[in-house]
């Protein structure tokens, strides 16, 4: 099946907010052998009647279309958008909390790099920082990897959330 070039795809899925929906979608992914790089879900409307999920997966184009069709088939799914990584039409961001434990020169370097990445220190002790960094996955990856070379690191990442650019808002 996966003969084409593998890319990252971001699925934005709007679902009815009811028990078992997350399990239905993640279960479909595992049952069919699709991978999930990241998955986020939160209710985003006023009356909490629907939730918005972001699912990042790696697949060639044909498989990505198949995954799209499989998601659409699930009854609680209202809408699916497929966003191809590297395309311009949408904004995709994630947030990471990065705790780095270091002293001396490494500690000063950590703070300097954080400034370059526009990461804020949310917690500070004499031997550690918790930085909040946000941006594209590549930027977050780079920040984490730099911090790893400066000390012991613990990372919490939100996973990707994405939205289309422009002035047109689709209905639910």
């Amino acid at each position: 099946m996966s003969e084409g070039v593998e890319k990252r795809w971001n699925f934005v899925v709007v679902v009815d907010n009811e028990p078992g929906v997350l399990s239905g979608i993640s279960g479909m992914f595992s049952a069919r052998g699709y991978n999930i790089d990241s998955l986020t879900v939160c209710s985003v409307d006023n009356d909490h009647s629907c939730s918005r999920m972001n699912i990042v997966t790696r697949a060639d184009e044909r498989l990505a279309r198949q995954i799209m069709a499989q998601i659409k088939r699930l009854i609680p799914v209202r809408r699916v958008d497929i966003l191809e990584d590297g395309r311009e039409g949408f904004v995709a961001k994630e947030v990471a909390l990065v705790r780095v434990v270091s002293e001396g020169a490494n500690r000063r370097e950590a703070l300097r790099i954080a400034t370059i990445f526009d990461a804020k220190a949310s917690d500070t002790t004499l031997t550690s920082f918790v930085f909040v960094v946000q941006g594209g996955s590549g930027k977050v990856d780079a920040f984490v990897s730099l911090m790893r070379s400066l000390g012991e690191v613990e990372v919490a990442r939100s996973g990707v959330v994405a939205i289309h650019r422009g002035s047109e808002i689709p209905g639910m």
Binding site: P19, G20, S23, P76
Partner: peptide, 14 residues
């Protein structure tokens, strides 16, 4: 029941 039958139904609900 819903957990067990989710992958073997078109839709299920409690």
């Amino acid at each position: 029941t819903c957990g067990i039958t989710r992958p073997c139904t078109k839709y299920n609900v409690l």
